[in-house]
Simulated scan of single mutants.
Amino acid sequence: MRFALSPEQRDFAAALDELLAGSDTPGVAREWADRRCEPGRKLWRDLADLGVWGLLVPEDLGGAGAEPADAVVALEACGYHAVPGPVVETAVVAPRLLGGDELAGVAAGESMATVAIPPEVPRALDADVADVVLRLDGESVTRVPSDVDPGGRVPSIDAARGLFPVPEHGVPLGAARPHAVEFGVLGVSAQLVGAARRMLGMATEYAMQRRQYGRPVGQYQAVKHLLADVTVRLEMARPLVDGAAVTLASSLDPPGADVPGAGAAAIVRDTSAAKVAATRAALLAARTSLQVHGAIGYTAEHDLGLWLTKVRALAGAWGTADAHRGRVLTAVRGGHGG
């Protein structure tokens, strides 16, 4: 299998980068962490204008009817720019759980959705801010009350992430479409790749600014090796994420890609392998960027901290690397691990 971005996807990525680069996303993330969410809401509406939240929504509901590979482009950009909020839940999971007017509202950027899927996702991200709070138990989708108690927030290493337990009672919405968990895993993997790219870029730039013994530290071979290791790890992860998107496309109805024989085991195998590789790349990028920046990287004022904490949180979100290694093992042995 070979995967390359189409000209349309490259243009989409460029438009997203232009929007997000001019939106002060570090400032938006800090405001979001303090629960001053209007800047984040505005950014959400701007992303809706580019079609981000409707990528996987059918055209008859106002979406683009696109494929998971298009969502990977968007979510990688969100990870690169540290966009706060239930990005994965709204962009790629909600279309597997909702329908009708509620899904049309998500596509239009009018509704922000979040979800809890025990045991993989035991708490709902930013349920105090989201307009639609869902719970998935097996194949049953329930819409639960969105007026959560702010005092029930579970602390996260990433201050911008608010995690909330959700009740089991609510309004039944019927059965979910297949592979909602795998879509979430793919989305988080794409975010991790984007965050890793950003930290690698920050470390490379700072290595040419920081001087020791009269020379930029980036001229020292040891630092070059550190940055090269991150680059290699990242280049190993991206094809797995892209490949998982292509495999997941085969689960759409009608199929969004020609992937013969991509059943449940293949989908679990590929999405879990993508999460493992993306997590490894992002954690290495975080460690290396902190080494390159030195003490300044530890400070709350430096933007690097936003990505360091986000990566640590995303590494365990939608399943740890160890859990996904187990899913890969189960899948290759003939099960589907779900």
Rank of each mutant, 00 (worst) to 15 (best):
E8G: 12
G63S: 03
G297R: 11
E76I: 00
D270N: 14
V144G: 08
P239A: 09
G22M: 11
D229L: 05
V88F: 05
D258F: 11
V223P: 00
A82Y: 04
P86S: 07
A196T: 09
A295W: 07
K224D: 00
G79T: 08
A104E: 13
V148H: 09
D17Q: 01
V166M: 13
V259N: 03
D149H: 03
S251G: 08
A262D: 08
P122W: 06
H302P: 00
L227D: 04
G335P: 10
S146T: 13
S6K: 09
E182C: 01
H169S: 15
P255S: 04
R10S: 03
A196V: 01
D60S: 14
P260W: 01
R197E: 15
T231V: 11
L19F: 00
L308R: 14
E76F: 05
L103E: 04
A29D: 02
R35A: 08
A195L: 12
P254W: 12
G100W: 10
A265P: 03
R333Y: 03
R36M: 02
S289D: 12
R312W: 10
Y80H: 14
A48R: 00
G105C: 07
G316S: 14
I267W: 03
A124E: 00
A245H: 10
V144T: 08
R41C: 00
V332D: 13
S251P: 01
G337R: 10
A196S: 15
V223G: 04
Q9K: 05
A159P: 10
D131G: 14
R41E: 12
G138K: 12
V133G: 11
A203D: 11
R215Y: 12
W53R: 05
P68Q: 01
R197M: 12
V311Q: 01
Q219W: 11
G335V: 01
M1I: 02
H169P: 07
A262E: 04
V92E: 06
E18A: 15
G85S: 02
E139H: 05
A281G: 07
R135E: 03
A124Y: 01
L248D: 00
D17L: 01
T309F: 09
T320R: 10
D34A: 15
V133N: 12
R45H: 12
K275H: 07
G243Q: 12
A195E: 05
P122C: 02
D17M: 05
G85E: 00
L290A: 14
H336Q: 11
E76Y: 00
V230S: 09
A130H: 06
A116F: 11
G174I: 04
L163S: 14
G187P: 08
H81P: 08
Q219T: 14
L192V: 07
P239S: 08
D17F: 01
R269W: 07
R161Y: 02
R30S: 07
S111K: 13
A4I: 05
E120F: 01
L136A: 07
A264N: 12
L240A: 13
V57T: 15
G79L: 09
L103P: 07
A176I: 03
D11K: 13
D322H: 08
P7H: 02
E38G: 04
A64I: 00
G99L: 03
G334S: 09
E8A: 15
W318V: 12
G319T: 02
D101V: 14
G319W: 06
S289W: 03
Q212F: 09
D229R: 15
V185Q: 11
G305K: 15
S250T: 02
P239M: 02
P145Y: 04
A127K: 04
G152P: 05
V141C: 10
G187Y: 13
L134F: 06
